[in-house]
Simulated assay, not measured.
Amino acid sequence: MFPDLLRDDIFRLETKRLWLRWPRIADAAAIVRLAGDKDVAQMTARIPHPYPQAAADRWIFESRVGNAQGSAVVLALTLKDRPSELIGVIGVHQTRAGRALLGYWLGKPFWGQGLMTEATQALVDLAFRASEVEKIETHAMVDNPRSCGVLLNAGFVVEGEKPVDMAERGGVFVCRYFGLDRETWQARQTAPLAAGDMRLAC
């Protein structure tokens, strides 16, 4: 699905404040600490709390395999002045022909700065420009307004809500489903921001 350019671990995506790069085994400690934070984990469907070291090692290995095979683009978020220090993760995974699933998390110390909005917009642009994906889908818990804001900023459209059984969270939670298709993304590239239009930020 994704081209050879993205299948090498020297690949790096640059934004105004971030480097997005392949995850490394040296990132495991930061993943355990940041993703395993209860406030972070409880807003996701599958991140355990606490986060075991072995699970972090396994996730890194599986992410690198997916990147190398071209079935996913999973990247560690780092600040430009600290490129070796992971602060979050973002990725798109092929689900079926022409479709991809977006997922992400950001360490709590970095919330409220617009960093995940910045990363999401960059990865969405990359996915549409570098592959033949026609639609990117994702979801967020309805009581996670930060994540919903990130998706709206990136051009995603709300497509509905439904309850989801989240074993790691110990129950059923209502999630809001979002989608962004290629046509909508392309229109957004050239559309000027309307007067008074406000972009929510994570």
Rank of each mutant, 00 (worst) to 15 (best):
I136E: 01
S71K: 09
R64Y: 09
F110K: 01
Y104R: 08
R64G: 02
A35H: 04
P50H: 14
T78N: 07
E62M: 09
D81P: 06
R12T: 07
P48C: 09
N67W: 01
V40T: 06
G91E: 12
E118G: 00
M116I: 03
R21W: 04
R12Q: 14
P48R: 00
A122E: 13
T117K: 01
G107N: 05
A54P: 00
D81C: 07
H93C: 04
W105Y: 01
K80Q: 15
W111L: 04
P50W: 13
I87K: 15
A119W: 03
I47E: 14
I60V: 15
I25C: 13
P50K: 12
I25V: 05
R24P: 01
E62P: 11
E137K: 08
S131F: 02
A30F: 02
P83Y: 12
Q94L: 05
A76C: 10
I47W: 08
G103E: 02
R64Q: 15
L126Q: 02
D37F: 04
L102A: 10
G88F: 00
I60H: 07
F61S: 12
G70L: 07
R33H: 04
L126M: 13
F128L: 12
V124S: 07
V92F: 10
I25Q: 15
L115S: 06
L34A: 05
A56N: 03
H49Q: 10
G66I: 00
E14D: 11
L102R: 01
Q94R: 13
I47T: 01
V142R: 03
A45D: 13
E132Q: 13
G70C: 09
V133R: 11
L86P: 00
G114S: 09
R58H: 10
V89A: 05
F128C: 06
R99Y: 11
D8T: 15
W59T: 05
R58A: 07
H139R: 15
R33A: 15
M43H: 08
E137Y: 09
P83R: 07
H139E: 15
R17Y: 08
G91N: 04
L77Y: 08
R17F: 02
D27E: 13
I87D: 00
P50D: 14
W22K: 09
F11T: 03
G91C: 05
P52I: 13
V142W: 11
R82P: 03
R46W: 06
P109H: 10
L13P: 04
T138V: 03
L13F: 06
D9I: 09
L123E: 10
W19F: 14
F61V: 04
S131P: 02
Q113H: 09
V74C: 10
L20W: 01
A41S: 14
L115V: 12
T95E: 08
L123T: 11
V89E: 00
L86Q: 09
K80I: 12
A72L: 04
T95Y: 06
N67P: 09
M43K: 15
G91L: 02
F11C: 01
K135C: 10
V40F: 02
Y51I: 09
Q42F: 12
W19Y: 13
W59I: 13
T117L: 08
P48A: 12
A55C: 03
Q113T: 02
V32Y: 00
G103Q: 03
H139S: 15
I90E: 05
A100Q: 07
A72W: 02
Y104C: 05
A45N: 10
S71P: 01
